[in-house]
Design a binder for these strands. Structure first.
Length: 203
DNA sequence: CCCTGATTCGC
DNA sequence: GCGAATCAGG
């Protein structure tokens, strides 16, 4: 692959948006993050101007003042998202095949809270017949969850959604995922059920 | 260990 | 100009 005008443009765009070199490399395909970084330097745009950086690296500049619209939440490199990026996340997460169901209340005190203006929450696919052991394990693990945002997920982090996507009280597990699987051990347990899990489980 | 960008240097 | 290898760091 060579650096065609198009590819360079995409590179510039993503770089200025604060995307990491590896992310850009993935998007472009056919190049490694090293190639991207090398190109970035040759183009002389190592200094990301115009957008916030910070994804995971560092580049902690002087925040000066100016109170942003977004309160706490997190410090990730949310490029263009002045609004609350909570909801759309769930839809994009490619962790939907199974039937997520977070009935573990203990973790979040405020649960029965309001439901913004959004839709009435998709009908939870009759969640389950999941073994109580697995459920117990999940509620334990959720306490230790890394509470990652969509952008912080990687191929090695558990993508199990926790909480209500329509609420601020939403995040992804983020614990180390099982190799090849999209979830951590505990969540793999509830996500992938044998065809007849508890039904005839004599013992 | 995962990841980040920065530099070097043979091609 | 390119990018793998390497370096420096969170």
């Amino acid at each position: 692959m060579s650096w065609t005008d198009e590819r360079v443009e995409l590179l510039k765009k993503m770089w200025s948006e604060g995307q990491s070199a590896s992310q850009i490399a993935k998007e472009l395909g056919g190049v490694t993050r090293n190639a991207v970084i090398g190109k970035v330097h040759r183009l002389g745009l190592s200094n990301r101007t115009g957008a916030e950086a910070g994804a995971a690296g560092e580049a902690e500049a002087a925040p000066a003042a100016a109170a942003p619209a977004a309160p706490a939440a997190s410090k990730p490199a949310a490029p263009s998202t002045p609004e609350q990026p909570v909801a759309p996340a769930a839809a994009t997460a490619e962790a939907a095949e199974p039937a997520p169901e977070t009935k573990a209340a203990p973790v979040s005190p405020a649960r029965n809270k309001i439901v913004p203006a959004g839709q009435p929450l998709p009908p939870q696919p009759s969640a389950n017949e999941i073994s109580p052991e697995a459920l117990a394990k999940v509620s334990e693990v959720e306490k230790k969850s890394k509470k990652l945002t969509l952008m912080e997920l990687t191929e090695r982090t558990c993508k199990w959604p926790v909480g209500d996507p329509a609420t601020e009280d939403f995040w992804f597990c983020g614990l180390p995922a099982q190799q090849g699987k999209p979830y951590c051990e505990a969540h793999v347990g509830v996500a992938f059920q044998p065809m007849s899990s508890r039904r005839d489980r004599r013992r």
